[in-house]
Nucleic acid binder design. Structure first.
Length: 103
DNA sequence: GGACTGACACTGG
DNA sequence: ACCAGTGCCAGTC
């Protein structure tokens, strides 16, 4: 797998149970605060579902990819709720509450 | 090797 | 605060 890819997968896989992270944050942790797109794209191009908990990765709004991944946003929300991630009435994950904060 | 694409993020109005 | 436009990086064709 490509270097950047591997790094993204490893970092996403590093997200603790019941936590969610944003693409920008992952990109920043990789050293590229501008690589948010690349991060999300990496998960899109290679959705290693089962190895990488891409369902714990959300955009800066706390929303999911859209509905073509994981089999549906509903699936996404259920998984996160099962892990203990709280959701807002807007349908977005409560980043203020369950955003992954390394350090 | 060049150009286009893409699960985002930020700035400006 | 919200909508629209631009920038970014890496991969694929």
């Amino acid at each position: 797998m490509k270097g950047y890819f591997s790094r993204v997968y490893q970092l996403v896989s590093s997200i603790p149970y019941g936590k969610v992270a944003t693409y920008g944050q992952i990109a920043a942790l990789l050293g590229d605060p501008r690589g948010a797109r690349t991060v999300g794209w990496a998960l899109h191009s290679n959705p290693d579902a089962g190895r990488v908990p891409c369902h714990r990765v959300v955009n800066r709004k706390g929303e999911l990819s859209g509905g073509f991944a994981f089999g549906g946003v509903e699936r996404q929300r259920s998984l996160l709720e099962e892990e203990g991630v709280h959701f807002l009435p807007d349908g977005r994950a409560d980043l203020e509450r369950d955003l992954w904060r390394p350090g």
